[in-house]
Every structure is written in structure tokens, then in C-alpha cells.
């Protein structure tokens, strides 16, 4: 044995790699921390220059995010009596009163329905299509696969106007179904291609063994192929969700009232009572949570998914 090893990095290499990774993590995490911090600042702290790193945290941004307020005269406010709750107190300090909840909750919920709904559809349809392409003799298989990929070659927004007109004709404008359909259509090519690659890696003998063992084709798919493809399906789901969750342009164009998602709503918060950056930051922070939770839940699969197939075992 020689002291030199190709596979085991030396202490200095490890140190160097660790430094690089930490540096990268700091660079990517800094804006995120800034947004989260801004959510807890007062409006004046939020726009202070130089930026304040240490500040007195307040929930004002969050209260502003979730409520609709109006300005009243001091006499009118006095007539209402003392504020009942802590958040009324925060609002009253600015000479405002709460007249009702804001629409953020609704918009957030729309995002959840549309984001997860389209991801679910993408995965179901994508897995079925990918399995068929991988296992059955499909006529013009390669051409069809290329066609599916080609639907993703232009930026989706390039076809915004035809889609807008079609949606108007079909009555899909500003509906949940319409947005789910649209995001599914955009993501499906990615999902078919990714999952196809994963299923191709699963030896067909596993299914044949299950067929011999007395299972039907569907049972073989369900009990043998799906667990094997779980890694690929999970990472594909994350990609689909991130796209649908963050999509802005179509959401602005096609939704306004009932089906509006959070991304087009968050910028409109700015308009309510001056430049309310803490409320915007609070909206963005809450908006991050579901994708983060979803990704953390599936992170094991994601890591394996990214390197899947890279090394022939």
C-alpha cells in the first residue's frame, strides 16, 4: 500500500473543499436571511442605510401582510376604545385600524392548490408515459420523445397570447383548473424525460420476475417499478413544484381574482399604505416555507436522484 490514494482526499483537500462549500452556502443564504430579517423590521429600519443588522424585531410586517387597514382620525380611533389584541395595538400605533383580513391567505392557498395539483398531475401522467415509452414497443418512439422535449425548447411565455385567447374561449381564465392544466402542460415534457431516464435504468428482469411470481403487469409496475423509481419521481416532483410555485408571468396574465397565486399578489402589497417592505418580506418568507419543507422531506431522494445513473453499479 502506498500512502498516496486516489479516492481518499487528504486533510488539506478536505479543508479546501469545506471552505469552498461554506463560502458558497453563505453567498446563497445571505439574501434569504436578509428577506427573513426584513420581515421582522419596522418600515423605517427596513429602508435604513447602512442596513441594520441588529434591530428591534416587530411583527408589524406580518400584521400588515394579513390585514386590510384604513387610516382614521384620532377622535374616531378614540371612540373605538382600547385595542383588544396585540396586533390591533400594533396597527393603532400607526393611526390605522383593521377593517378585515387581507387576501394573502387566499392567494397562498391558491398557490398550494395549483402548485401541488399540477405537480401531482405531472407525476402521474409523466410516470405513465415514461413507463410506456420505456417498456412497450411504441411506434415512432424516438420521434415522439423528441417532440415531447421540443415543447420545452422555447420559453413558455412566448405562447402567452395564444394561450390567453384559448383560455378566454374555453372559460379557463382565472380558474384553478386552468392554471393547473397550464403548469402541467409546461412541466410534463420535463417530467416524462426525467422519469423515462430513471425507469430505463431499472432492469426489466425485476418485472419479469414478478410476472413469473404470479403478479399482473399492473401489480408488477405498482409493487416493483414504482418503489425503484421513487428516487427519480421524488426529484422530478421537486423540479415540477418549484417551477409551478414560482411561476410569475402566466399568473399575472391569466389570473386576477379567484385563482390568483401568491407571486403576482406579493408585489401588490407594496401599494398598501406606502412602501411596506416588511410586509413584502413577510409574504416572501411564508411563501418559501412549503417548497422548503417539501424539498427537505424529499432531500434524500433528491441527492440520490441527481447522481442516479452516473455510476454503473
Amino acid at each position: 500500500m502506498s500512502s498516496f490514494s486516489v479516492t481518499e482526499p487528504s486533510a488539506r483537500q478536505k479543508y479546501f473543499a469545506g471552505t469552498l462549500v461554506s463560502l458558497y452556502a453563505i453567498i446563497t443564504l445571505l439574501p434569504l436571511l436578509w428577506i427573513i430579517a426584513t420581515g421582522f423590521k419596522s418600515p423605517s429600519d427596513a429602508i435604513a442605510y447602512p442596513p441594520e443588522v441588529f434591530f428591534e424585531p416587530t411583527l408589524e410586517g406580518y400584521v400588515n401582510l394579513f390585514t386590510t387597514q384604513t387610516r382614521v382620525t384620532a377622535e374616531a380611533a378614540a371612540e373605538l376604545g382600547e385595542p383588544q389584541t396585540w396586533y390591533e395595538q400594533i396597527v393603532r400605533d400607526n393611526d390605522m385600524i383593521i377593517v378585515g383580513p387581507s387576501r394573502y391567505g387566499e392567494r397562498f392557498f391558491n398557490s398550494v392548490i395549483i402548485g401541488f395539483g399540477s405537480t401531482f398531475l405531472c407525476i402521474v401522467l409523466g410516470t405513465a408515459a415514461a413507463y410506456a415509452f420505456s417498456r412497450f414497443r411504441v411506434p415512432l418512439k424516438d420521434d415522439l420523445m423528441f417532440f415531447i422535449l421540443s415543447t420545452r425548447m422555447m420559453p413558455p411565455i412566448a405562447v402567452a397570447i395564444p394561450i390567453f385567447l384559448m383560455f378566454r374561449q374555453l372559460g379557463l381564465n382565472d380558474t384553478h383548473a386552468g392554471m393547473i392544466l397550464l403548469y402541467t402542460a409546461v412541466n410534463l415534457s420535463l417530467s416524462v424525460w426525467l422519469i423515462h431516464g430513471f425507469i430505463d435504468e431499472i432492469p426489466i428482469e425485476y418485472e419479469e420476475a414478478a410476472l413469473i411470481d404470479g403478479y399482473t403487469r399492473f401489480q408488477a409496475f405498482y409493487k416493483i417499478v414504482l418503489p425503484q423509481a421513487a428516487t427519480g419521481i421524488a426529484s422530478t416532483a421537486i423540479f415540477c413544484l418549484i417551477f409551478a410555485w414560482n411561476e410569475y408571468a402566466f399568473a399575472v396574465l391569466l389570473t386576477s381574482g379567484t385563482a390568483q397565486t401568491a407571486p403576482p399578489f406579493i408585489p401588490t402589497i407594496i401599494g398598501v399604505g406606502g412602501q411596506d417592505w416588511p410586509a413584502v418580506a413577510a409574504g416572501a418568507t411564508i411563501f418559501l416555507v412549503p417548497v422548503m419543507v417539501f424539498t427537505i422531506l424529499l432531500r434524500k431522494h433528491l441527492l440520490r436522484g441527481i447522481t442516479f445513473g452516473a455510476v454503473r453499479k
Binding site: 425485476y206 420476475a209 410476472l211 413469473i212 404470479g214 399482473t216
Partner: peptide, 15 residues
């Protein structure tokens, strides 16, 4: 179909 023939199969790669 294979599932109705009541036979067992040993694959080269074991599967």
C-alpha cells in the same frame, strides 16, 4: 401470461 403458467424462473442477473 407467465403468471398463469405456474412456473419459476431464475434469471442470469438473479433479479
Amino acid at each position: 401470461p407467465a403468471s398463469q403458467r405456474d412456473i419459476a424462473f431464475v434469471f442470469q442477473m438473479f433479479a
